[in-house]
Structure formats: structure tokens, C-alpha cells
């Protein structure tokens, strides 16, 4: 009877643990699916149309209150000599690459946060400072951030940057798609200023369709691939180009979401206090078993003593 009870207890404990584990891991995935709207935006960077005027860099700085030199100075081409990355004072940068087909028309590629469909930074952030909004943008809340910079490590595009120069209240900075500005002006600053509409802003589904038709129409110009359509589960910013994307320093990535496995394990383990509950359950079980064992031993000891006594008598 005692044994039966113990087995029952263990069974239910394991059952509860497993069910919590499953429930915990399924819930977050569901949540991220829910937040994405069907009308979420997408932006196409048509590298064939971009002329590398860098007006987007200027507009971005102005929109984010970052000090900037006059717009006329941006036509200086010498910055293209070195490959540049985003930093705390430039949330977007345009780089120039050689065009083998026509040397007079170099390829220009604008880089910024890709606003992934399944963002690794959101998943990596331990305090929930990053969030993926319904319209597709990935934004950062400075009040929650503790400056751990896990997001910088997690990002497959190495985009989020840190205000290393500011000793007091340094910030994580990255493109926020002019989240505040769009409440009144509809378009992000870079899209608005682009003279050639090399940045096409619209519903993500429309953007993918337009990108496909452009590739089809100018089949001799573009390679047949939309970068970002499926990379790491899809991104909001997408690129079409006449040159291999790896040569344009856009990393070759899997089609499965970056945080897929890590997130499900993490969320599975940490959701609903599963680790402490299981730990206590495990410790409790061990304690309970070992206590019983001691009790058994003393009973046996008593019996043998009695036997000895009886034998003597």
C-alpha cells in the first residue's frame, strides 16, 4: 500500500512537470504569431535603382536627433572607400560595391535593422526591452534595458549598437523605422527622402509581389532571389540585386527563424517557474525517499535487536 502511494505521487509529479513544460513552450510561439498583422509593412531595397546619394543617412540622423553635417556634404564619394557598419550615430549606412557588368554603375546597398519576422534580439533580451510590434517593426524600450548587450550578440546581421561614448545612460541604438514619426507622417524618414524611390514601402505581401515582378521583367539585371523573403524566417526589409548577396555583405542565412530552437528551449525551461518547481520537486522527492529509507533501516534494526533479545531469552 505504501509503495503504491509513492509510485502514484511520482507519476503525477512527472505528469505535471511535463504538462507545464509543454504548455510553457507552446505559449510564447503562439504569442509571436498572433502579434504579426496581415497588413504588416515590408520595405524593398532595389539596389539597381539606388544611386548612393546617402540622403537616407542624413534624413535618419535628423529624424533621430543625431547631430549631422549639412546635406550637401553627403555627396562626397570618398566615404565609400571603406566598408562601414552601423554605429550609435548612424543607424543606417550605404556601402558601395563594384558592378562587374558596368563599372560606371556601382551597386549601393543600404544596411539597417532588418526588422525580422522572428527577431533574435527580442528573444535574447532578458528584460523584454525589445518588442516586435503588430505592424512588423522591432522597437527598443530604453526604460527597461539594463545594457547587457545580449541583443548585439544575438542579431544575425550585427545591427544593434551601443553608445560606448556615453558614460551616463548609454543606449542601445538601431533603426526603429521612425516608429514615433510614422504616427503622423506615415513613412520612415529614409523612404520619404529617397530621390529614386529605391526604398519601396508598402504591405509586405505587396512588396514581395512587386519584387518578384521586377525580377521577372528585368531578368538580365537581377538574380532570381529576394533576400529577406525567407532568410531566418523572413525580414521586413528585403533586397533585390544583380549581384550575389554574399558579395554585398548580406550574410547567407538559413530559412528557419534564428531564435527558433533557442527560444523554445529557453521559454520552455523558464516559463511558469518550471526550473524552480522541478528543482524543488526533485529535492523534495529525494528528501522524502531518503527519510523513508532511514525509517525502514531503524525498523529493521529494531527487529534484529528484538530477535537477538529473543534468541538470548
Amino acid at each position: 500500500m505504501k509503495n503504491q502511494n509513492r509510485r502514484d505521487f511520482l507519476k503525477t509529479a512527472a505528469g505535471i512537470g511535463a504538462s507545464i513544460g509543454i504548455a510553457g513552450s507552446v505559449k510564447p510561439a503562439k504569442a509571436s504569431e498572433k502579434t504579426l498583422s496581415d497588413d504588416r509593412f515590408g520595405i524593398l531595397v532595389d539596389t539597381d535603382v539606388c544611386v548612393g546619394c546617402r540622403h537616407c543617412e542624413w534624413a535618419c540622423r535628423v529624424a533621430h536627433n543625431i547631430p549631422t553635417p549639412d546635406l550637401d556634404t553627403y555627396s562626397d564619394n570618398s566615404v565609400f572607400k571603406e566598408y562601414r557598419r552601423t554605429d550609435a550615430s548612424s543607424l543606417t549606412v550605404v556601402n558601395e560595391f563594384e558592378n562587374e557588368k558596368n563599372s560606371a554603375m556601382p551597386v549601393h546597398v543600404k544596411t539597417q535593422c532588418m526588422h525580422c519576422e522572428h527577431p533574435a534580439c527580442v528573444s535574447a533580451c532578458i528584460v523584454g526591452a525589445f518588442s516586435k510590434l503588430e505592424d512588423g517593426s522591432v522597437v527598443w524600450d530604453g526604460d527597461k534595458c539594463i545594457g547587457c548587450r545580449y541583443c548585439m550578440v544575438a542579431c544575425p546581421f550585427q545591427i544593434p549598437t551601443y553608445d560606448y561614448d556615453r558614460s551616463i545612460d548609454p543606449q542601445i541604438r538601431k533603426c526603429d523605422l521612425c516608429f514615433e514619426k510614422r504616427k503622423t507622417e506615415k513613412l520612415p524618414a529614409c523612404v520619404n527622402i529617397c530621390p529614386n524611390e529605391a526604398l519601396l514601402f508598402g504591405k509586405r505581401d505587396d512588396i514581395v509581389r512587386i519584387a518578384k515582378s521586377r525580377i521577372k521583367r528585368k531578368y538580365d539585371v537581377y538574380i532570381d532571389h529576394i533576400y529577406g523573403e525567407k532568410e531566418i524566417g523572413g525580414t521586413s526589409w528585403m533586397y533585390i540585386a544583380g549581384k550575389d548577396f554574399e558579395k554585398l555583405k548580406l550574410p547567407k542565412l538559413n530559412y528557419s527563424p534564428a531564435p527558433g530552437i533557442s527560444e523554445s528551449i529557453q521559454h520552455g525551461i523558464f516559463a511558469y517557474f518550471v526550473p524552480p518547481v522541478t528543482l524543488y520537486a526533485l529535492l523534495g522527492t529525494i528528501m522524502w525517499i531518503t527519510r523513508k529509507k532511514k525509517g525502514d533501516d531503524s525498523e529493521i534494526k529494531d527487529e534484529t535487536n528484538q530477535d537477538k533479545k529473543g534468541g538470548a531469552l
Binding site: A14, S19, I22, G24, A29, E33, S256, P257, S264, G268
Partner: peptide, 22 residues
């Protein structure tokens, strides 16, 4: 072992969920 199994199953489930979304 049971606890570990439970996590393994849950991980697999959530991966399938992502594929489904894709």
C-alpha cells in the same frame, strides 16, 4: 529522466510550431 523527456518533447513541439508558421 521523465523530466528531461518532457522538455525534449516540448522543444520538438515548439519547433514544429515554427515550421507551421513558415
Amino acid at each position: 529522466l521523465l523530466v528531461i523527456c518532457a522538455f525534449a518533447i516540448s522543444t520538438l513541439f515548439s519547433q514544429n510550431k515554427h515550421q507551421g508558421l513558415n
